[in-house]
Nucleic acid binder design. Sequence first.
RNA 1: GGCGAAUUCGUCUAUCGGCUAGGACAGAUGCCUCUCACGCAUCAAAGAAGGGUUCGAUUCCCUUAUUCGCUACCA
Length: 492
Amino acid sequence: NYLFAKQHGGDLIFRIEDTDSNRFVPGAEEYIIESFKWLGIKFDEGVSFGGNHGPYRQSERRDIYRKYVQVLLDNGKAYIAFDTPEELDKKRAEIENFQYDAKTRGMMRNSLTLSKEEVDALIAAGEQYVVRFKIEPGRDVLVDDLIRGEVTINSSILDDKVLYKSADDLPTYHLANIVDDHLMEVTHVIRGEEWLPSAPLHVLLYEAFGWADTMPRFAHLPLLLKPVGNGKLSKRDGDKLGFPVFPLEWHDPKSGEISSGYREKGYLPQAVVNFLALLGWNPGNDQELMSLDEMVKLFDLSKCSKAGAKFDYVKAAWFNHQYLIQQDDKEWCPAFDKILKDNGINATAEQEAEVVRMMKMKVIEYVDGQGNKKKRNISFVSDLWPLTKFFFVAPTSFDKEDKFIKKNWKETTSDEMAQMLTVIEGIEDFTVEGMKAVIDPWTEQTGIKPWNPWRVALVGEGLGPDMYELAAFLGKDEVIKRMKFAIDAMSN
RNA sequence: GGCGAAUUCGUCUAUCGGCUAGGACAGAUGCCUCUCACGCAUCAAAGAAGGGUUCGAUUCCCUUAUUCGCUACCA
């Protein structure tokens, strides 16, 4: 909706459709606003955004709906029904495939079967009622969908939908939606496929009000499906499979349940928007990485797919990786700082920046000795801890079955490391250049290839940055300490 | 059950009658390399099934199958 509206210079409206008072959730509205803000999706009108078509909360538009319900009642397009939920349940149990429609409305308690006096008396007595849309059967209703083309549905399969319920003096979605869209001068309705079956009902409502000529265009988008198995993606699937479904972490005030959020998991909003936009739409070429502004230019409803798309959280992580590596070093530091704190490390800001710099060296493109461009695969800043802990914590033991250690620490290695240790102890200038000046000639003289064993000693496993850089960061004392410990531990 | 929609590699998708069916993620292999990665190269991987229409169907039509959605005084 955002892409479409912006592309056409239109306004995006943020309307709260809270016509089901039973389902009111405190905090949900604020949550939604904050989520869109985080994603960078800005509305032009609506709750918290202002505009000339308010109020934008349907629960605050009761006067308006009451008026339009009356219009339909007056022109015979709707009627009042007194059937209680219990009575309806009974009918459904009695009659197979019961539907409240032209065939059955004659046997129900409503203003079509009751006299005007009876109806007035019931209302005066405080009886609860609903207003139902009187659907004329046997008509083929055409829905011209921008994505699916022309869809025809016969009105006979539609039931006499409830438009308004007196119990809470609120309309249902169908009535509120049509009235609001008309009054708010909505030109396009882009919504999920689950609305396609009731689209003809909405067309009929526009006609009943005499608004057919200004009826908005419809576009029904495909649904998001579960990553594994069948069915549409539900709120709970995410945490079951280890990925977020909610944009922001959500604490349900009623159940106390916590659903993880993209923001808290370390996703970048641009990555989420990009990934989501491509689920069900593509620009028609091979381009996958696009900013919101680019997507506004490229978006095309006719290029939206019609079938549901399975949610692939592995690819979502890849998108995040792409956006993460484009970020400046400094943007990683706050998140990295938190990771360190969480792991009980007290590092100086300089140290943090230095580690991030070194890791980013391997993340951002750089050219190695062979002229190859290199990068590092980090999808989330939170991935950094296992890749950086050795900067702050010395190895406490060595897994002799570890493939890297086994391969690189042979029988003679402890002796070679001991030789290297004496060389290192003699180094005055413990910088990358200073070490190179001493160690490079030493390796050539002795023929010893110290890199991997040295890595075992300082890191404890087969990962990390260039050894000179790492050693310079750790400092001479720490390097000596770790080497002594390794030589000792490995010879036992 | 009824109605509607959908159906291309494991996943997201391109193709608007000419296909040796393209790309991306994931996977495999190789190269690179002081490690892990990254990068690069290569490989493997698809038109649900059956009928039509057509010189020619992944593309159009029909049937079947499967999946999804709707069938609430929920949205």
